[in-house]
Amino acid sequence: MLHRYFIELSFVGTKYSGWQLQHNGISVQQTLNEKLSLKLGRKVEVTGAGRTDAGVHAEFFVVHFDTNVEIEQDFIAEMNNFLPNDIVFHCIRKVKPDAHARFSAISRTYQYRISTKKNPFLYEFSHYYYGKLDLEKMNIAAKILLSVSDFTSFSKLHGNNKTNICKLTKSEWKKQGDMLIFTITADRFLRNMVRAIVGTLLDVGKGKISIEQFKNIIDGKNRSLASSSVIAKGLFLTGIEYDSEIYEE
């Protein structure tokens, strides 16, 4: 009898070519497939909650896999001794057979972190920007996104999305010490969407784009109208929400 499990984990994306299996680099998915297969003594293929790009980090990520072996909680400690140092498992939970790490997710939350003061310990985990930014205007623009449904202007060109419709429930900037943190929550995200939004909001903060121009960028439904995407290392997947009914225990 096959059992389906969710694993909650974190990973540092610096050394990986993204989540998804790649022909030209090592991915997080490939690493987990190999380690779990070795541990369980049979082929294991995990399915992830999303497809993070190269260099993007995940403080909270979920995968599911099927096995005919009953997994115990000490499996987590054993796997953490087996995994590379930039990946850690937090817990494993048995779920219903039709539960899906990606398609059962109700919402996802990302943060983009900007360091306003040079800090070598944050180099791999933030985007360093030392210029002046109008945080108030950036938040005015960020709030506009809550009433937007079509995010074509912030979608990767030729991304082959079936739809560019997303429903945002949170979009805000906060200053925490020397850090500026943008938090965004939605039912789904398009490829490169968050980094394109952040790049455009930064140009609002720099005074390069007015609030009216920001609205026109959205209405134009054209990626070339928005600003360049910010670098990947400042982006973190921080939360994924599921209905509690998917869990067996």
Rank of each mutant, 00 (worst) to 15 (best):
D74R: 06
F75T: 10
I76S: 05
I76N: 05
I76Y: 04
A77R: 13
A77C: 05
E78D: 10
M79P: 00
L83D: 10
L83P: 01
N85L: 12
N85K: 11
I87L: 06
V88Y: 02
F89G: 02
F89S: 02
H90S: 04
H90F: 07
C91L: 11
I92N: 01
R93T: 02
K94P: 05
K94D: 08
V95A: 09
K96R: 11
A99N: 01
H100M: 07
A101R: 03
R102G: 04
R102Y: 12
F103K: 11
S104R: 13
A105N: 09
I106K: 15
R108Q: 09
R108L: 09
Y110S: 07
I114G: 00
S115I: 00
T116Y: 07
N119I: 07
N119W: 06
F121I: 10
F125T: 03
Y128S: 02
Y129N: 02
D134L: 08
L135H: 03
K137P: 04
K137Y: 05
K143G: 00
K143I: 00
I144Q: 00
L145Y: 00
L145N: 01
L145D: 01
L145P: 09
L146H: 02
L146S: 01
S147Q: 14
S147T: 14
V148A: 08
V148W: 05
S149F: 11
D150H: 11
F151C: 11
T152P: 06
S153Q: 14
S153G: 15
S153D: 12
S153M: 15
L157Y: 07
H158S: 15
G159E: 07
N160H: 09
N160F: 09
K162D: 14
T163F: 07
I165R: 10
I165M: 08
I165P: 01
C166L: 04
K167A: 12
L168Q: 04
T169Q: 13
T169N: 12
K170W: 04
W173M: 01
K174P: 01
Q176S: 13
G177R: 06
D178T: 06
F182P: 02
F182Y: 15
T183A: 13
T185G: 03
T185P: 04
R188W: 11
F189G: 13
R191S: 15
R195F: 07
R195H: 14
I197Q: 04
I197C: 13
I197V: 15
G199W: 03
G199V: 08
L201M: 04
D203R: 14
D203E: 15
G205E: 10
I209V: 13
I209W: 01
I211R: 03
E212I: 13
E212Y: 10
F214A: 07
F214N: 08
N216D: 12
N216Q: 14
